[in-house]
Design a protein around this nucleic acid. Structure first.
Lengths: 217, 217
DNA sequence: CCATACCGACCGACGGTCGGTCGGTGGCGG
DNA sequence: CCGCCACCGACCGACCGTCGGTCGGTATGG
């Protein structure tokens, strides 16, 4: 009658838990997801979960770390491709959003505990992606398509504001502003990185990156 | 022996609760502060707190709203002063940090629930201050000291990244980066708003705004 | 046979609720 | 002008359900 205890290698079980938790966290919010919920979804007992993770918070941290690592790998690949600098620049940005749709999706509802999730993700993303993207910009500066004295700093500023302003889990109820903000951020990037005005916007449009057609406002 | 029940007008009691909660939240973190703690600090019973607030979360929201309103008032005053545009621009930024030291201070410790607090503050600040600051920039554009086609958008981007990058409750353990980031943000502001390079930096230095001396990096 | 993975009853703390109490105030009859 | 009383906003604290986390013990498989 007992459903037969199944044992798995720790790494795999860890991933199972992370998968379930990620789905639930993004679906109904971190606070609103109980450990019990995760247990039921994975099909394990409480003790098992706490055998693999020290706390609920560590699970959240685990999701963010895992996702960030995946994105960083993809970003690195894109950054190292033999494409034009502008293509690679936009490609890295795309890698951030494309690979993490799970993080950006759903949970339009109530707040507590969710902004936390989003902001931690953003911070980790900025930390991980800034050096990669700055490298691309530096190459752009070297070849003349970009022009700035502080690539790393400007990239950091751009990534931070991008992460915040395009996340509707943070600026609640302003999802309709996202196209405007996307255009504004591209415009800001052009200015800050000193590339030909409109160069990023048109390239973004060609790459079919959302809301990247016109001027801001 | 019973300490005699003291009754106050609701508004005042509300403020008392907000005061205590703000002190505790910033001291030991939102999550780590129990409702019980607040009760003890204010010297009231649980029912009383829940007579004035619907939930712990509403208290947090109340603190943020109150602080934002105060800052907005001060920012408005500064923006309307008969000073040079650049002075007023920096003055508004200063108003944000000066008037909200309670929000930025302390609680270097453990994470959960605190980033939430900070990020909500930042979002509200951006919402409240953007129009005020954009107005100043527009005046600057009109008189020629600034030059940008999208004042509102650029201000929004600047405020967002400022809020994030200068808050050590968000980028944990990077407090030492703040001077560098301050300089970078000023530099970015100069570029985005199209004012004379170094104009903001020197003015900031004259106004004794922290870490605003040299170029970025 | 021993480490590793797993189980689930149990615990204490916490956020939130609820029935009820207290003190001041305004109206009204005397 | 006084005293009574109905009313009401503010206040109280015992109580409850839920939740994150613990622990002693058990199955599995190398």
């Amino acid at each position: 009658m007992t459903p037969a205890r199944i044992s798995k290698p720790a790494a795999q079980r860890r991933d199972d838990i992370l998968d379930a938790a990620q789905r639930l966290f993004t679906t109904k919010g971190v606070q609103a997801t109980s450990v019990e919920d995760i247990l039921q979804d994975v099909g394990i007992a409480k003790g098992t979960l706490y055998y693999h993770f020290r706390s609920k918070d560590e699970i959240l941290q685990g999701i963010i770390t895992r996702t960030t690592e995946r994105v960083a790998v993809k970003a690195r690949q894109v950054a190292d491709r033999p494409d034009p600098v502008i293509t690679r620049f936009l490609g890295v940005l795309a890698a951030m959003r494309v690979d993490a749709p799970e993080l950006a999706l759903a949970e339009t509802l109530h707040g507590p505990g969710n902004a936390e999730f989003h902001v931690l993700s953003i911070v980790e993303m900025v930390r991980a992606i800034t050096p990669i993207l700055a490298e691309v910009v530096e190459q752009g500066v070297a070849e003349g398509s970009f022009s700035t004295e502080h690539p790393q700093d400007m990239v950091e500023i751009l990534l931070t504001s991008m992460g915040m302003l395009l996340d509707d889990g943070i600026f609640r109820g302003e999802a309709d502003q996202i196209p405007r903000r996307t255009a504004a951020l591209i415009s800001a990037a052009e200015t800050l990185l000193g590339c030909r005005p409109g160069a990023l916007a048109t390239a973004a449009h060609d790459m079919r990156i959302a809301g990247a057609t016109g001027g801001a406002r």
